[in-house]
Write a protein that binds this DNA or RNA. Structure first.
Length: 421
RNA sequence: GCCGGGUUGGGGUAGUGGGUAUCCUUGGGGACUGUGGAUCCCCGGACCCGGGUUCAAUUCCCGGACCCGGCCCCA
């Protein structure tokens, strides 16, 4: 018996019903905001990731040398490929809004909410530096979660990289990237350890404590300015906070609530240049549901041309954790699925003909071909996700009507075949 | 890469240094002439892998694989 690879998942129909439903909500939401679908290969040249992310990330990928001695990587993230597509067709009029649901791979120890292969819903806007574009990206993430029934179960934590940089600057940071990395560990380290680390990065322990107090408080997004000014009255952050406030007010106008300003959200990646955000379940039990931000400089690394960009990624694993917990890991059959069960030899031909007619009308119709008794056929039909059984025996042959049984309620009615839909 | 806990038919389990390895369920076949989504009968199917200790290992020891969780990292 050959076993499945470590960290990979099999999906049976009962899960695929739900997964298809989820992916459909993602696509539908993306379209509502005017995004167009793209797709790209699962394999890319290793260099695509080397330039952007460095050797550390590469060590956590599935990579190999192909027969032509090329270094190949199974894509671990979506953004580089997306940017590559854009760079390969430079005359596309901007802005563009693209989405994709690729499979991604990472060679790491599996743990809760993280597998070696996962699907990730990605959406990006290129060539639009406005705060409304930021809002559209965050709004799309919210729209998707709301569409899945998670409204009220999650919060979006937002922050602005440049505001944090200004603050770090004013506190005498020795190294901004290192400072951000320390802040990023806020929810993993003790206060003492945080103060110690920040003291090493900033000009004084007083400053470290002030920053620690600042990042320890999440506030409603509309109160962000107030919060920042309270702690750092003399820092000229207005230019960036105006930007962030426009994003926030757009989200409010569209009725996406549950947005909080969280100074501890900075995200690990160095390439973010503006707003950054992460979605979490409200209880904070799981890893982030989605995350993203503005990355206006990344494109120049890959295509040699600078281009405003903002985007997010939403993995399927944490989403599944949360949906299962909220009892939302289910999907109603989008359409009726019929199985035709015959209980009289002479009904066989009629049954096949009926199946053909129904299919020609766009109705999903299968026939039961194994000649079990009715009880067993009904049981098997339910186990195979049919919504209705059409029962045909002598009685039906004589009356010219068929019996349609709803397999979930057990309700039954007689009808003309034209009444089936 | 590191740390902790696990692993007995497809799923859930009982048990044991020695005999044909327990029970439920699922699956397959049959009976049953139209819905009791049943019932009855029959059948198939497991000690994760390798090494060690021992007369004898599914059981004890060591290593590995995989699963669950955590660290690192986070796309």
């Amino acid at each position: 018996m050959i076993e499945r690879l470590k960290g990979f998942r099999d999906f049976y129909p009962e899960d695929m019903i739900v997964r298809e439903h989820i992916f459909n909500i993602m696509r539908k939401s993306a379209k509502l905001f005017g995004f167009m679908p793209i797709d790209y290969p699962s394999l890319e040249s290793m260099d695509l990731f080397r330039t952007k992310s460095g050797e550390e990330l590469l060590s956590q990928t599935y990579s190999f040398i192909d027969r032509g001695k090329r270094e190949i990587t199974m894509i671990p993230e979506a953004t580089p490929s997306t940017v590559r597509l854009l760079g390969a067709k430079k005359n596309i009029p901007k802005p563009v809004k693209w989405y994709c649901i690729p499979k991604l791979w990472r060679y790491e120890e599996p743990q809760s909410g993280r597998t070696r292969e996962h699907s990730q819903f990605n959406a990006d806007i290129f060539g639009d530096a406005s705060p409304v574009a930021d809002a559209e990206i965050i709004g799309l993430a919210c729209e998707t979660l709301n569409g899945l029934g998670l409204k009220g179960s999650y919060e979006v934590r937002i922050n602005h990289r440049q505001i944090m940089e200004k603050i770090l600057d004013s506190l005498g940071t020795k190294n901004i990237t290192e400072g951000l990395n320390i802040i990023d560990r806020f929810r993993k380290e003790s206060r003492e350890k945080m103060i110690e680390n920040l003291s090493g990065n900033l000009s004084s322990t007083d400053n470290a404590e002030r920053l620690m107090d600042f990042i320890s408080g999440k506030v409603q997004a509309s109160k962000a300015d107030e919060r920042i000014r309270e702690f750092f009255p003399n820092i000229p952050f207005e230019q960036f906070s105006e930007n962030m406030n426009e994003t926030i007010s757009a989200l409010e106008a569209w009725d996406y609530n549950d947005i909080v300003y969280d100074p501890a959200t900075v995200r690990g990646l160095t390439y973010y240049t503006g707003i950054v955000f992460e979605g979490f379940d409200k209880e904070g039990k799981y890893r982030s549901i989605f995350g993203g931000g503005r990355y206006d400089k990344l494109s120049s690394i890959i295509t040699g041309q600078e281009l405003a960009a903002v985007g997010f990624g939403m993995g399927d694993a944490v989403l599944e954790n949360l949906l299962r917990e909220k009892n939302l890991w289910k999907a109603e059959a989008a359409r009726n699925r019929y199985i035709i069960i015959t209980i009289a030899e002479e009904a066989q031909k009629f049954s096949l003909k009926l199946a053909g007619n129904l299919r020609a009308r766009g109705i999903e119709a299968a026939t039961s071909n194994t000649h079990k008794n009715l009880s067993n056929s009904l049981r098997s039909a339910t186990a195979n996700w049919y919504t209705h059984a059409i029962i045909i025996g002598k009685k039906e042959m004589e009356s010219g009507k068929v019996t349609v049984r709803n397999l979930s309620t057990g309700e039954q009615k007689e009808t003309d075949t034209s009444g089936i839909n």
